[in-house]
Nucleic acid binder design. Structure first.
Lengths: 238, 238
DNA sequence: GTCGGCAAAATTGTCAACAATAATGGCGCA
DNA sequence: TGCGCCATTATTGTTGACAATTTTGCCGAC
């Protein structure tokens, strides 16, 4: 139950939330997974969940279906669902996709950014510097998430944004592991500032390259930190 | 009921197919949408579908849920589902995402391609030339689909491949419209050959650029052909 | 003649019970 | 004692009926 990175941060912007009984269960389970309350490979029994939350089994079933499509849960025919454990290799794949997709969004953001949005990005950049100086790892992690999200929004590429949001949720654990790595913020800070600068300068190409460089660095750190931290939760049986 | 491009071509490789009753309905509805039997914005009433196919309403419901996640149908709370009509703007967005994602796959394919796979790509290229010479538009369209799919597979980037497969299904109609445009094959043929050559030469960067160039051309053609053909089916009320 | 509201119909959302399938444990047999 | 088979249990898949919601058609009032 460690990754408390942001857990509910996405609940506000996330895609589909069929209000009512079913929607409540969906958000509940998703938050439990994202917060680490439900650990990877943990079995998700429909009956148990319908008791834990109060809803009917059908509601739980619908929620699990949705979560499977979001890539947070894996289901096998007649064998039930369990929390998806994304391996290191998968995490790297996800980052590769993020690299090109966020690059696209950043390029479009550089073309479309308004003055007000520019000021906002600068604000995030300044706050990031402050967080790193103060050694506020958790605050920096939150700002990191916020920056990436704002770039997506400014880019206004809904197709890419939807995919990216889903991928982000899938790799929350790896993202957290990375944030905890000592010296990591110091390394990523200048990369983030470069992204902001390029977008502010209305330079699509530079923005794209800056994002690429940043995520290449993330991939490198991800692969390197494999054995240092405890578990790169992969395909271990529960 | 015009786009007969490939319809069932994907049924074989497509992601999740919960076998049994539910799976049959899913494939049935998907194929009906892809083949154009169900037109954009057409309402999909659960009761009607459960009669048309034989399954229960719950099976239909599950299938519609799945298709919504695949982006082929749109659902609104208490208002039912209808075939998604992807507008021209959305189609262009999709192509932009395809551009960077297929670029990534092609780059990885250039690094991983085997001799046998190289021969296979060359075969596709030769067949494409033949099809264009013979004026076989439909055959060329099929080869086009096959080339893109093989590049994805050789790239071995499952995360990207999954997203691409979903996006391809969403834009089948626009893809078809484009294929029917006179002179289009002649324009895209050299682009395809360039992609094959770059991958065969084990040149990731060149492969990525070739794919980018190709899809930029697709986007251009898509935007240009807007008013020529009959309907760029957008947000028209049923 | 048209607009607002009300009732009926159509359609989806929800639920609880039943059937089918896979996992578990025990028993006999070698 | 170890292995394979069968009954039991746990869990998911499916079905049908009921409730809630939205849409449609109708009627009267202005």
């Amino acid at each position: 139950m460690e990754p408390t990175v942001d857990a509910n941060a996405n609940a506000s912007e996330n895609a589909v939330r069929p209000a009512g009984a079913a929607g409540f269960v969906l958000d509940g389970i998703r938050e439990a997974i994202l917060s680490g309350e439900f650990v990877p490979n943990q079995r998700l029994v429909e009956a148990d969940l319908s008791e834990q939350f109060v809803a009917s089994r059908a509601a739980v079933r619908t929620a699990l279906l949705q979560l499977a499509h979001e890539g947070l849960v894996e289901r096998v025919q007649n064998r039930g669902a369990r929390v998806r454990a994304v391996s290191l290799a998968e995490a790297i794949e996800i980052c590769e996709v993020r690299m090109v997709l966020e690059g696209l969004c950043a390029a479009k953001a550089a073309e479309r950014i308004t003055a007000a949005e520019g000021v906002e990005l600068d604000g995030i950049g300044a706050a990031m510097c402050a967080a790193v100086s103060a050694g506020d790892v958790l605050g920096y992690s939150r700002l990191n998430e916020r920056l990436h999200r704002r770039v997506r929004e400014i880019g206004a590429q809904r197709t890419a944004a939807t995919v990216l949001e889903r991928l982000r949720a899938q790799s929350v654990r790896h993202q957290f592991r990375l944030a905890m790595q000592p010296g990591r913020p110091t390394e990523s800070l200048p990369e983030h500032l470069a992204i902001i600068a390029a977008i502010r300068a209305n330079d699509p190409r530079a923005a794209e390259l800056a994002v690429h460089a940043h995520l290449r660095s993330v991939i490198h750190a991800l692969a390197g930190a494999e054995e240092h931290t405890g578990a790169a939760n992969g395909r271990d049986s529960s």
